[in-house]
Design a protein around this nucleic acid. Structure first.
Length: 758
DNA sequence: TCGAGAATTGTTTTT
DNA sequence: CAATTCTCGA
């Protein structure tokens, strides 16, 4: 019965090695998903394994959905019994069931990055910490990496030596206690709480061990220590663990991914079998040569070389442009004129910020695009507001959600009143929502008390409706109409598109809810919120519309396109500054892997571009060609391109190339969610020589005639001492300590400082 | 209480 | 440059 004849010998080996630990080193495009799906089919059809006993873990919902679909096509029965899931949704499912053992009620809320920051901001404030010394982002980073390593606040505090570490320990402890109080978990908690649950409850662990007799993990190179532990625990009984990955594609170190997990798999799981998949079915020989040449510069990898029987194809092209604008212009034009369909082309970049220029040029040339990433649909204000209302219906102890919507739309409940309620809640040891319900008893509340109880009643009524089984769609519509939210949006910005766009986004959310309810047998609010919390951007990428795809290299992992543009290959951008001057060469290696991932997304054609200068945070930066370009095979040529047609050549250095930036950038509403079509498409005939409005040309900067330490006089502030002179992009920035007015930072050309001698 | 405008500040990648 | 926070006036 041979499905399996279509597999190559290595692939077959991986499919048939069902018992015991197995590491499949799958190079890019080597058919690993085929292996996984055939392996599952083999287990069920040939070995008679009950689908119920199979667990397949992926990183994205998209990958999970794809795998499920392919398994469905291969297996004749029972495919729906298999758990195909991401780490996060698997853990949520387990925790919804057994979370009480860890002190969380089943309706717990999942906090996204924004929620985490809001919570952290409050914590830092209440702990009275200097916001310069302890920043939200830094604190959350510390906590996240501790959680990735399964270190609890208590353990960390015990090992903390210096004051700073101790403080972080305290912050961590407070953060955890706040989460628990709000009955909420962040993404990292989902994993570590599950691990803790298993470690504290052998019976529960045993249940899942018995259940999951065959475990498969995709993208294993991206697992962190906590995920490793989780998998080890689950596989500990039957040891039928198959992991698939490629150390050369490990690109999530910043998120705690530990490349050691894959490099030391054989050590962790003695007797593990290793299978290498090195035949590539995706790319042309030329593209593979490029990929191999670049990645060969990394050390400490599992040696492997991809080969292919595909044709050699077009040569890889590299072009360097004068400016990032020229680069973007070229790409948009090239996409328009290409023989490839739009949907067969993709532009891949290192940072989300790079998409702007490309978008602008696509608008200009009428190129339809689809932007993946950037501001996530579910992070938009209006969406988060509605979701906060929904969250309150299932988990009213979530103070963060109360804070978010208590005065949205405006109810005349100000910060002072909310503050009083918070104090009261803290004092009584109750949740903020309970305090709000009981607002009449809060001291000093005055008139705001009525407003608060009205709000509480509103929420309580919705809560009842949710319990009574009103549909999510109807609930959202209820919120929209009965809270006055819709009215407020309609009132705001009558001229701008804002309010309208927001309403459209909410419509989109309603559609999501409706389709969730349509395709789920027993829809429930918690599950809907969970799905919403765990979607990745790439998950929402729809297949069909004929548009070019714009996305980061990270989101591109696992995808492929006939034609790929790899852009912004410049030192400082790619590899990033962060990686370059971290002092750890391993960081540049990770960037190189990212480059490898990018190259290997291409099936037929690959074009690499760079710019000599680009605007970064408001400053023009001169950019050198990325080292990765130098690592390409020697037959790849670098073409230096002057200014393209239609534009006069400007002086290559200094100002000039920024002349006419027509503000097409305003077409930025409706990003993402498949709605990023461009409304200006047919109006885009504006010649690029049209003078721009409002944007003035850089001031010719003049070096000041004073220096640091000099005494100077200023019209408004009087006499002072020059503290610092910084050579900014458009002007010199001068910092002066004024005798009367204190320290000021100003631009030299406007400050009109006069040197004085005393 | 709240909005508008000023000031400040950040510089990757995301489940 | 853009996004966010801060400040001030009504």
């Amino acid at each position: 019965m041979s499905n399996y004849d279509t597999l190559n010998p290595r692939q077959r080996e991986a499919v048939f090695a069902t018992e015991g630990p197995l590491l499949v080193l799958a190079g890019a495009g080597s058919g690993k998903t085929r292996v996984l799906t055939h392996r599952i089919a083999y287990l069920i059809e040939e070995l008679g394994v009950n689908p119920w006993h199979i667990l397949a873990i992926t990183f994205t919902n998209k990958a999970a959905a794809e795998m499920r679909e392919r398994v469905d096509n291969l297996v004749s029965f029972g495919a729906e019994e298999i758990w195909v899931s991401t780490f996060h949704s698997m853990c949520v499912r387990i925790l919804r069931r057994y979370g009480e053992h860890q002190g969380y009620a089943s309706g717990f809320t999942i906090y996204d990055g924004d929620d985490q920051r809001t919570l952290m901001r409050q914590i830092l404030k209440t702990m009275n910490l200097d916001p310069k010394q302890y920043r939200e982002r830094a604190a959350l980073g510390v906590i996240s990496s501790l959680k990735d390593k399964l270190i609890t606040p208590e353990t960390f505090l015990m090992s903390a030596t210096d004051f700073r570490q101790k403080t972080y320990g305290e912050i961590y402890r407070e953060y955890q206690s706040q989460l628990k109080k709000n009955n909420a978990m962040d993404f990292d908690d989902l994993i570590c709480q599950t691990v803790a649950l298993f470690e504290n409850n052998p019976d529960i662990l045993k249940y899942y061990q018995e259940r999951f007799r065959y475990i498969m993990v995709d993208e294993y190179q991206d697992t962190n220590q906590a995920q490793f532990r989780l998998v080890s625990l689950l596989a500990d009984r039957y040891k039928n663990l198959c992991v698939v990955g490629d150390d050369d594609q490990s690109i999530y170190k910043f998120r705690g991914a530990d490349i050691e997990n894959i490099l030391s798999f054989e050590k962790h799981f003695p007797g593990a079998k290793v299978v290498r998949l090195e035949q590539n079915y995706r790319s042309t020989q030329n593209i593979l040569d490029a990929a191999n040449a670049v990645i060969a510069h990394n050390r400490g990898r599992k040696e492997k070389t991809l080969w292919t029987q595909n044709v050699s194809g077009e040569k890889v092209r590299v072009k360097q442009f004068d400016s990032a604008r020229d680069e973007a212009d070229y790409i948009a034009k090239q996409i328009r004129d290409s023989n490839f369909a739009y949907e067969d082309q993709a532009v891949l970049y290192r940072t989300n910020a790079q998409s702007r220029l490309i978008e602008e040029r696509c608008v200009y040339y009428n190129v339809p695009y689809r932007l993946v990433g950037g501001v996530n649909f579910y992070q938009r204000k209006e969406i988060k507001d509605i979701l906060a209302y929904l969250r309150l219906m299932s988990n009213s102890v979530d103070d963060l959600s109360v804070l978010r919507v208590i005065n949205v739309p405006k109810r005349k409940i100000g910060a002072t009143s909310v503050g009083r309620a918070q104090d009261f809640a803290a004092q009584q040891g109750i949740s903020l929502f309970d305090a709000v319900c009981d607002a009449v008893h809060i001291p000093g509340m005055g008139k705001a008390a009525e407003k608060m109880t009205a709000f509480a009643d509103l929420i309580n009524r919705f809560k009842e409706r949710a319990v009574e089984g009103e549909s999510i769609k109807a609930l959202i519509e209820g919120i929209l109409d009965e809270t006055g939210y819709r009215e407020e949006l309609q009132a705001e910005d009558e001229d701008a598109v804002q309010g309208q766009t927001r309403l459209e986004n909410i419509e989109e959310l309603i559609n999501k809810a409706a389709s969730y309810e349509a395709e789920t047998e027993v829809p429930n609010l918690d599950e809907f919120l969970e799905q919403v919390a765990l979607v990745a951007d790439a998950d929402r990428m729809e297949e069909d519309p004929n548009r070019v795809t714009l996305m980061t290299l990270h989101s591109a992992k696992g995808l492929e396109f006939p034609k790929v543009y790899l852009v912004g290959l410049e030192e400082g951008l790619f590899p990033s500054f962060m990686a370059m001057d971290s002092g750890d060469p391993k960081d540049v290696e990770e960037e190189r892997r990212l480059c490898y991932v990018g190259i290997t997304r291409a099936r037929e054609e690959l074009e690499i571009t760079a710019a000599k200068k680009r605007m970064i945070n408001g400053e023009w930066r001169e950019c050198k060609l990325s080292r990765f370009v130098g690592e390409l095979p020697s037959d790849v040529e670098v073409e230096r391109v002057g200014l393209g047609d239609g534009e006069r050549a400007a002086k290559p250095s200094g100002f000039g190339a920024s002349t006419s930036r027509t503000s097409l950038g305003n077409a930025r509403n409706g990003r993402g969610f498949g709605s990023s079509y461009n409304p200006y498409a047919s109006a885009a005939k504006t010649p690029s020589s049209k003078p721009s409005f409002g944007k003035t040309f850089s001031v010719q900067k003049e070096k000041p005639d004073y220096a640091v330490g000099d005494r100077v006089m200023q019209e408004r502030f009087g006499a002072g001492t020059v503290k610092e002179i910084k050579d900014g992009a458009r002007d010199f920035e001068v910092t002066v300590e004024f005798d009367g007015a204190g320290q000021k930072r100003m631009l030299a050309s406007f400050a009109k400082l006069q040197k004085i001698s005393e």
